[in-house]
């Protein structure tokens, strides 16, 4: 099942993720949000993609709890008549918000994990978008993963010559890392553009260039993207 879904075009996957994320922010029912989260986590696990990145996302949600709790509890107390009611209200808001955030993160991770760079590129090209726009979008989408991997590489190179990574605990030491990563990202983007231009990605797609076709996976994902809106929007 997950193999079929993974073979769907990048655009169908994006549509599924966007639809789910928007729905999550429209739906106030925590039970439905829990269900959607379980569905996304299940898809990640079934496709063997429930790795440390997913745990990192969960960690980010947990790390944001104290700040968000303070904000929501204050908001609840201000809105309710009594302290007790206010705290309960604030906690319920917090729970729903965290569940929404998690839906968005898991849906994003699902798309990133299931979509290769070439999938994305070819899907955009199949839309007959101008070549330069395809290049721009592809570079933009790969920017964050690329920056993370470059940063890890630069730290490794610096470690080889005496840099202590513990120094990065102090934000003032970010600059010596940021500049090389920025320079490397510039070069990487230039290389990406040259490589793709040479392969004819930037030119107008030829008449026989691949067109978007709806496979079983696309149909399932698009149906799910629509079907989710049939779920109730009131608690």
């Amino acid at each position: 099942m997950t193999t079929v879904l993974r073979q769907a075009s990048a655009l169908s996957k994006c549509a599924f993720a966007v639809s789910l994320s928007v729905y999550a922010f429209a739906c106030p029912d925590w039970r439905i949000l829990v269900g959607v989260n379980l569905l996304l986590a299940g898809l990640l696990a079934a496709s063997r993609q429930f790795d440390r990145i997913v745990w990192l996302a969960l960690g980010v949600c947990v790390a944001s709890l104290p700040t968000l709790a303070a904000l929501f509890l204050l908001g609840g107390v201000e809105k309710a008549d009594t302290w007790r009611e206010g705290l309960v209200l604030g906690l319920s808001w917090l729970a729903v918000f965290e569940l929404r955030l998690l839906v968005m993160l898991l849906a994003d991770i699902l798309v990133v994990k299931w979509t290769t760079f070439s999938d994305l590129l070819l899907s955009l090209r199949a839309l007959r978008l101008p070549g330069k726009l395809v290049l721009f979008c592809s570079a933009l989408v790969t920017l964050l993963p690329s920056v993370f991997s470059l940063a890890a590489h630069v730290v490794e190179v610096q470690r080889c010559r005496g840099f202590d990574p513990k120094r990065l605990r102090n934000p003032k030491n970010f600059l010596p890392l940021f500049i090389p990563v920025f320079l490397a990202q510039l070069r990487r983007s230039t290389d990406l553009a040259l490589s793709l231009e040479l392969r004819g990605i930037s030119g107008a797609p030829p008449a026989r260039a691949s067109r978007l076709t709806l496979g079983v996976g696309d149909t399932a994902l698009l149906a799910a993207a629509v079907a989710v809106w049939l779920l109730p929007l009131s608690a």
Binding site: T116, F117, S118, L121, L122, R125, R199, G200, I201, P205, P206, A207, R208, A209, S210
Partner: peptide, 15 residues
Amino acid sequence: RTVYDELALALLARG
């Protein structure tokens, strides 16, 4: 992602 993807990219792009 893979060796095959790299070889096939330009061919797929031209249809």
